[in-house]
């Protein structure tokens, strides 16, 4: 099939960008979206033009490196699917596809579709961990964890840190990302000890990094390739209230 692409091109952070039109010809429905872009890039290179720069790595939906807003939706139209696992059979011959970078103040564009997501790392640095030393920890079965809690923690821990929640959020908030980590650790007995401090410093860092406030739009959930639930944002809010009133 043949497609019409409008792709955001921007040379560097401090330069202006614009949408540019490209044609993608002879695209097989078996291709992944990124393989389609690979093919467009091969064509551009042969013509002596600069290929479209985009982030990607594992191409199996787990590393969280790929980004891209495709036709107005982070990671494209297929639910719970990263860009790298989106296949061209989800599009039709003759379609026009708009491809833009994830946008937020905290995610400056580095080049074309590549953005700087280091702000998410800094949210984790603020307190997204259990301060366990290497070695000197008790036997793994010393603390029992109800299966249900382990499952809930895992539901939250599935976050791949891609930033689609931020890209989708009308307020550019990283609340779902932060909530996933806060909840994952707050559910577990090992993580409860630092829970109060954690929720405060992580949300504070979130604002400091230039992310917006949560407006309960739930766009994040709809865009999340791992389907992280917004109940975790409620959980974060609960953890915050507990921290404020000194409840354990």
């Amino acid at each position: 099939m043949n497609l019409n692409l409008f792709v955001w091109r921007q040379k560097r952070t401090d330069e202006k960008g614009a949408m540019e039109r490209y044609e993608a010809k002879d695209i097989s429905p078996e291709m992944s979206f990124l393989e389609m872009l690979d093919m467009v890039n091969e064509g551009l290179i042969k013509k002596g033009m600069e290929p479209i720069a985009f982030d990607h790595d594992c191409r199996e939906g787990i590393c969280g490196m790929c980004s891209q807003v495709i036709n107005g939706i982070p990671h494209g139209p297929k639910e719970k699917t990263t860009t790298c696992q989106l296949h061209m059979r989800n599009f039709r011959d003759g379609d026009t596809i708009y491809i833009e970078p994830f946008r937020a103040k905290a995610f400056p564009v580095i080049k074309d579709l590549i953005i700087d997501r280091s702000a998410l790392d800094r949210i984790i640095q603020a307190g997204g961990y259990i301060s366990a030393h290497t070695g000197g920890v008790p036997d793994a079965n010393a603390v029992l964890i109800p299966k249900e809690d382990a499952e809930t923690a895992m539901d939250a821990a599935e976050c791949i840190g891609c930033g689609a929640c931020v890209a989708a959020c009308p307020n550019g908030s990283a609340m779902l990302f932060t909530a996933a980590k806060v909840s994952h650790l707050a559910v577990l007995p090992q993580g409860k000890i630092e829970a109060a401090r954690r929720v405060c410093v992580m949300t504070e860092e979130m604002l400091n990094e230039g992310f917006g406030n949560c407006g309960n739009h739930y766009e994040c959930r709809a865009a999340c390739p791992k389907g992280i639930e917004v109940k975790f944002i409620a959980k974060l809010n609960r953890e915050y209230i507990k921290a404020q009133i000194g409840m354990k």
């Binding site: 036709n71 107005g72 833009e100 946008r103 917006g212 766009e219």
Partner: peptide, 26 residues
């Protein structure tokens, strides 16, 4: 909060689809 939120999203998308939110929330 509204001022902050606007600042956090300085550039809008050329094409943006609404997924779960609605006119009222926006």
């Amino acid at each position: 909060v509204a001022v902050e939120n606007r600042a956090a999203k300085p550039q809008t998308y050329v094409v943006k689809k609404r997924l779960r939110t609605n006119f009222a929330a926006e």
